[in-house]
C-alpha cells in the first residue's frame, strides 16, 4: 500500500512541481534580467500558475486536419509518461523511493531516451515544415549526446560498483562523486541539458528560428503536456545530477546531520534547478552542427579519457597495477 501512495504522491508532486517551476523560472529569469516577471496575481505572483492552468485547460483541443492524428495525440503523452516513469527509480531519501531496482541507472537512461521519441514524433506528425525541422534537429541532437551521456555515468558506476541508485548514493558517504568524477559531472550536465531540451540546447524548439519547432502546431492541453514533460525532464535531470554526483540525500560528510535526508535532497535539487535557469539566462543557443561537433569532438573524448583514468586509478588502488 505504501509504495502506491508514494507513487501517487510523486506523481502529483511532479505535476505540481512542474507547474510551480514555470512560475519560478519566469521570476528567476526576470530577476537576472533586471525585471520582475509575473508578480501581480497572488503573493509573489504565484497565482500566475493557476491562471495559466485555467487558460490552457479551457483552450480548444484542436488537431490540424493535415496532421497524422493518432501520432499527433500520442506524442505529447509519451514525453510525460516517460519522464514520470523516470521518477520511479529516484531515491529521494532512504526508504522514500518507489522501487530500488539493480539497474536503476539504466532504467533512467532508457526512459529519458524514450522521451526524445515524443519530440521526434510530434515534429513528424504535425506535417509542418518548422515542426519537421525541429524533429530533425531533435534526432541529430539525440545521436550526438546519447552516446556520451551513458558513457559519462560509467565512471560513477565503476566507482560505486553498482547500477542501483541507492548503492551509488551510499558509495558517496565520504566523498561525493562531483570531486572524483568532475569530468563526468561536466559531461553529464551538458548531456542532461540536451536531453531535457532546455536552453541553451533547445534546438528542436528554437523559437527564434523555427517559430516553436516541434510543437508549432500544438495548443491547449497538448502543448501544456509538452511543457509539463520539459519541466519534469528538468526536475528528473536535476534529481539525477544530485543522486549521481552530489551525494543524493546525504549531507556533507561529518557536518551534514542537522537536516533530514529528504531536506538535503530537496535543497540540492533546488540549487541544481536554479543553476539550469542561470544557464538559460546566460548562454546563447549554438547551431546544431556546433552542438554535434561539440558532442563528438570534445565531449566524447573527455568521457573516454575520464573512463580510462577512473579505471586506471581503481585498478591501482586495488593493487592491480
Amino acid at each position: 500500500m505504501l509504495p502506491v501512495l508514494l507513487a501517487l504522491a510523486i506523481l502529483l508532486g511532479g505535476v505540481a512541481g512542474a507547474a510551480v517551476l514555470t512560475w519560478w523560472e519566469r521570476r528567476l529569469l526576470g530577476f537576472w534580467q533586471d525585471r520582475y516577471g509575473p508578480n501581480r496575481l497572488g503573493p509573489f505572483g504565484i497565482g500566475q500558475v493557476l491562471a495559466d492552468m485555467i487558460k490552457l485547460l479551457t483552450k480548444d483541443d484542436w488537431v490540424p486536419p493535415f496532421a497524422d492524428k493518432v501520432v499527433f495525440i500520442f506524442a505529447p503523452t509519451a514525453i510525460v509518461v516517460a519522464m514520470m516513469m523516470g521518477f520511479a527509480v529516484v531515491p529521494f531519501a532512504p526508504g522514500v523511493m518507489i522501487i530500488d531496482v539493480n539497474i536503476g541507472l539504466l532504467f533512467f537512461l532508457g526512459m529519458t531516451s524514450l522521451a526524445v521519441y515524443s519530440v521526434l514524433l510530434g515534429g513528424l506528425a504535425s506535417n509542418n515544415k518548422y515542426a519537421l525541422l525541429g524533429g530533425l534537429r531533435s534526432a541529430a541532437q539525440m545521436v550526438s549526446y546519447e552516446v556520451f551521456m551513458g558513457l559519462s555515468l560509467m565512471g560513477v558506476v565503476m566507482m560505486s560498483d553498482s547500477f542501483s541508485l541507492v548503492d551509488i548514493v551510499e558509495a558517496q558517504t565520504n566523498v561525493w562523486f562531483c570531486f572524483s568524477q568532475a569530468l563526468g559531472l561536466l559531461v553529464f550536465v551538458i548531456a542532461g541539458i540536451a536531453e531535457s531540451h532546455r536552453l541553451p540546447f533547445d534546438l528542436p524548439e528554437a523559437e527564434h528560428e523555427l517559430t516553436a519547432g516541434f510543437h508549432t502546431e500544438y495548443g491547449g492541453m497538448k502543448f501544456a503536456m509538452f511543457m509539463l514533460g520539459e519541466y519534469l525532464g528538468l526536475m528528473l535531470i536535476s534529481c539525477m545530477i544530485v543522486t549521481l554526483f552530489f551525494g543524493g540525500w546525504l549531507g556533507p560528510a561529518y557536518i551534514g546531520h542537522w537536516l533530514p535526508p529528504i531536506a538535503w535532497f530537496g535543497l540540492k535539487v533546488f540549487f541544481v534547478i536554479n543553476f539550469f535557469v542561470l544557464l538559460r539566462a546566460a548562454i546563447p543557443r549554438p547551431r546544431y552542427d556546433q552542438l554535434m561537433s561539440l558532442g563528438w569532438k570534445v565531449m566524447l573524448p573527455i568521457t573516454l579519457v575520464n573512463l580510462v583514468i577512473t579505471g586506471a586509478v581503481l585498478l591501482w588502488m586495488e593493487g592491480g597495477i
Binding site: 530577476f31 534580467q33 544557464l279 546566460a282 548562454i283
Partner: peptide, 9 residues
C-alpha cells in the same frame, strides 16, 4: 557570461 549574469542578482 554566467558570472556576469549572476551578478545581476
Amino acid at each position: 557570461t554566467m558570472w556576469e549574469i549572476f551578478k545581476h542578482s
